[in-house]
Design a binder for these strands. Structure first.
Lengths: 148, 148
DNA sequence: ATCCCTGCAAAGCCTTTGCAATGCA
DNA sequence: TGCATTGCAAAGGCTTTGCAGGGAT
């Protein structure tokens, strides 16, 4: 049973239907871990199924997020990014080149709020670092020097 | 010198102009720590300056964010929230009632990525916990029981 | 006297929604 | 067969942009 099959089975187990479109979307997510946007998923899925509609992509992404198989990542950019679930990790985004990188972190280190706000039921947690990757950092630095 | 004056001075020091509109917007942010959206800031500012334009609010918020006086908070909701800077803290948001709460956290606990990704220059970090506040958690639980 | 900032309105852009047709279970 | 799902297109909703007049420095 492939990975895609496995996720489809999970979908079915949750009472959702497995359509060719959803298989294609899951396939795209499985192959692209670069945190694609809905539009990017749409574009890639269309290569396989040219008639697929944008609404179908949004719909599928929402369902996958809802059942916890896909993570919706808000990076302070305009669009949302999607990320097939692969364990807890933070995101690092370069404000210059837009590159997004996964970074592991210790979930225990973030347990603080549960003590501070008793009774709050945490569903998910997102950690995003914004800044400049090494390459862009040095480039920006040089520009600053040049403009002086 | 009031708090608003201080922020205005910072604006000026950065080469930006201090207009009555910006004073009003800063005032609103200072009085409202509930993480208002741009629209909410706009509405409150309009009580003082009825002719203020939405564009002015967006413009001012961007400038304040850019110089680090205001924090832009992305909670996975449709709109962005704004928060006059008051030290490092995480955000806790209730998916049921939308209430947003600040929670302190230990920045050192999140220092991991800096080791993992040498050379990445972190500009800011956002930590968001999504879930259900005590009141909503129990209410949702009751609904679940009732619908069985 | 500059030229940044403002207000207004329109445009942009991502996302959501409505509806009839389709097809999974 | 029943109803979730699809495709298409339009609507929605937040944010950005263009432009001419006005105001901070």
């Amino acid at each position: 049973m492939t990975f895609v099959d496995d996720l489809c089975a999970q979908l079915r187990a949750r009472g959702r239907r497995v359509t060719p479109q959803r298989r294609a979307i899951i396939q795209v997510l499985q192959e692209d871990h670069s945190h694609p946007t809905a539009e990017q998923v749409f574009a890639r899925a269309r290569r396989v199924m040219p008639d697929m509609s944008r609404a179908t992509v949004y719909n599928a992404l929402h369902e996958l997020v809802e059942i916890g198989m896909v993570r919706e990542v808000d990076l302070g950019l305009r669009e949302r990014h999607y990320d097939i679930t692969t364990g807890e990790h933070a995101h690092l985004i370069c404000l210059e080149c837009g590159h997004i990188e996964d970074v592991p972190y210790d979930p225990d280190a973030l347990a603080l709020p549960r003590e501070r706000v008793p009774g709050f039921e945490v569903v998910d947690c997102s950690v995003v670092f914004r800044g400049y990757c090494p390459a862009c950092a040095s480039r920006v630095e040089n520009q600053d020097r040049a403009s002086e």
